[in-house]
Simulated scan of single mutants.
Amino acid sequence: MTVLLHIDASARKERSISRALGETFKHQWLSSKPADKFIYRDIGSTPPDFISESWIAAVFTPEGKRTDEQNLLLALSDVLIEELTEADVIAISTPMYNYGMPASLKAWIDQVVRVNKTFTFDLNRGDFPLEPTLSGKSLVLLTSCGEFGFGENGTREDMNHLGPHIQTVSKYLGVDEVYEISVEYQEFGDNRHKRSIESAYESIPGMIKSIATNT
């Protein structure tokens, strides 16, 4: 049995392209693998708390010495990390906001990328002291954006701070393989946008087959 964790990050509940992509991916995955377990987090509607000075202090306090208040501060982080740890496949459906990720998605990442939980820190490793503790997961990134040309060699490649950022931190989510489907031209609403949507949906079955083969 494979465990699929789906993170929805769009602030929109209606007419969200990334949400629709995520829903289609989930439906097709579970249709082909109905015995798999599905975990869902709608962080676009219910964003995780931002980390704070008190949260950071709690993280760096040894577990046996934390106060009840500190344990409460870390309770959501613990749950989110449990979901992440259990997952074999992580699907993140998210729009691009201002050339980067929504604040809710950054908040989720900050809650789960946590020292002594999803990575260790050891200065004996020299200039690269961080080491992930999780591995073997696949990440499916389903994105939408208003403009276009954010992919490799695209006209706006250097303005893309969504996919590259997520790929950079993905190793601390335990990710070994990253797959991405993007819809562009949303603000133009022309035939290019229509073709981009069609291409995205046509790519989902092949992606699922590829991931299932490697999982």
Rank of each mutant, 00 (worst) to 15 (best):
S10C: 11
V183P: 01
R12T: 08
Y40P: 01
V178A: 15
T168S: 14
P129C: 08
G126I: 08
V183L: 01
T24A: 15
S203E: 13
L4I: 04
T94H: 00
E63K: 15
H161L: 10
C145M: 08
W55Q: 08
K65W: 07
L139V: 05
W29Q: 00
S54E: 15
G22N: 07
Y201C: 08
M159Q: 10
R156A: 02
A58M: 06
E184I: 03
M1A: 15
R192M: 12
G100V: 00
N124D: 14
E202M: 01
I90R: 13
G206L: 00
F60S: 06
I17C: 05
F121L: 02
A212P: 02
T155L: 01
E157K: 01
I51P: 13
I208S: 09
A57I: 09
D42R: 09
S54C: 09
G126K: 01
A57V: 10
E63N: 15
E147F: 01
V178S: 14
R41L: 11
S52E: 10
A58K: 04
D78Y: 01
L73S: 02
R12V: 07
D176Q: 03
L173C: 00
T143R: 06
Y201E: 14
Q167C: 07
T168A: 13
S54T: 11
G44E: 00
T61I: 10
L139Q: 00
L173K: 02
L73K: 05
H27D: 14
P164K: 11
V112I: 09
S135P: 10
T143E: 13
H193Y: 07
D122E: 12
N160K: 00
L80T: 01
I39E: 00
A58V: 05
A75N: 11
S144V: 02
N116Q: 14
I81V: 13
N98P: 04
L4C: 01
D88C: 06
T168M: 12
F188S: 02
P48I: 04
Q167T: 10
F128V: 12
E83S: 06
D42N: 14
K209L: 12
G22F: 06
I7P: 04
T94Q: 13
T24Q: 08
G149E: 00
P132E: 12
E202T: 02
S196E: 01
A75Y: 07
M96Y: 08
V140D: 05
S182K: 06
A103K: 10
F128T: 15
E147A: 15
Q70R: 14
F60M: 13
F119R: 03
I197R: 11
E14D: 14
L139N: 02
P205K: 12
K171D: 04
S210W: 02
E187K: 12
G22K: 05
D110Q: 03
N124R: 14
V140A: 06
T85R: 13
V113M: 06
P62L: 10
G64P: 12
H165V: 08
S203W: 04
R195T: 14
Q167L: 11
L84Y: 11
F25T: 08
